[in-house]
Computed example of a mutant assay.
Amino acid sequence: MVTSIAFVVAALCAGSMGFAIQRGATCTVAAVNEVVNKLRFNRLIAIVEASVWVTGGLLIAQMLHLLAKMPAGYPVNYLTVLGGALLGLGAFINGACVFGAIARLGSGEWAYLATPLGFYAGCLSLGTLSTASAHHTLDYRSFVLRAPTSVSLLFAAFIIWRVARPLLTARPAGSGAGVIQRARQGIASHLWSPHAATTVIGVAFLFMLLLVGTWSYTDVLIELARGMANSLITRCLLLLALLLGAVLGGRTAGPSGSTGVALAQVSKCFLGGALMGWGSLLIPGGNDGLLLVGMPLLYPYAWVAFVAMCASIGTASLVQKVMSDRTAQQRMERR
Rank of each mutant, 00 (worst) to 15 (best):
M295Y: 03
W53M: 15
Q62A: 15
F41D: 04
M295H: 03
R184H: 11
G95C: 09
F99A: 14
F99G: 11
Q62L: 10
A241I: 08
S133T: 12
G249T: 12
T26Y: 15
L263E: 10
L145C: 01
V32C: 04
V52H: 13
M70Y: 13
A72I: 03
P300V: 07
A85W: 04
T115W: 05
S216I: 01
A274Q: 09
T169S: 08
D219R: 05
A311V: 13
P300M: 11
L167C: 04
G88Y: 03
L167T: 01
R171S: 13
A183E: 06
L168I: 05
V2K: 10
T214A: 09
G254I: 02
I180L: 08
Q320M: 12
T131V: 00
L242N: 01
H190S: 14
S133I: 08
I93P: 05
G250Q: 00
L263K: 05
L240Q: 09
Q181I: 12
W303G: 04
Y112T: 00
V32W: 03
V8P: 05
Y140P: 04
C310M: 07
V322E: 11
L282K: 07
G202W: 10
F306S: 04
L206D: 05
A311K: 02
I180A: 03
G277L: 00
A253T: 02
L210R: 13
L221Q: 06
A103C: 08
G289L: 02
P75V: 13
S317F: 03
N230C: 03
S312G: 07
A14E: 14
G254F: 01
A225C: 00
Y120V: 03
A183S: 06
Y112K: 01
S312E: 08
F143N: 09
C236P: 00
A241N: 02
Y217P: 05
R331I: 15
A111T: 06
R171F: 13
Q181M: 13
G186N: 11
F143M: 06
F207K: 02
Y217L: 05
A264P: 00
G106V: 03
V304K: 06
A91G: 10
T218Y: 03
Y140R: 06
S16L: 15
L89H: 02
V304C: 07
G286L: 01
G174Q: 02
I233G: 11
G279Y: 00
F270S: 09
P166N: 01
V48H: 10
Y120T: 05
G90W: 05
L281M: 08
A157P: 06
W161C: 09
V319L: 09
S142L: 01
V322Y: 05
G174C: 09
F158C: 09
G245F: 07
A262I: 03
I159G: 08
N77I: 00
T234W: 10
H65F: 15
Q320C: 09
E223P: 01
Q185M: 13
A31C: 08
A197T: 08
A311H: 01
A188C: 04
R162D: 02
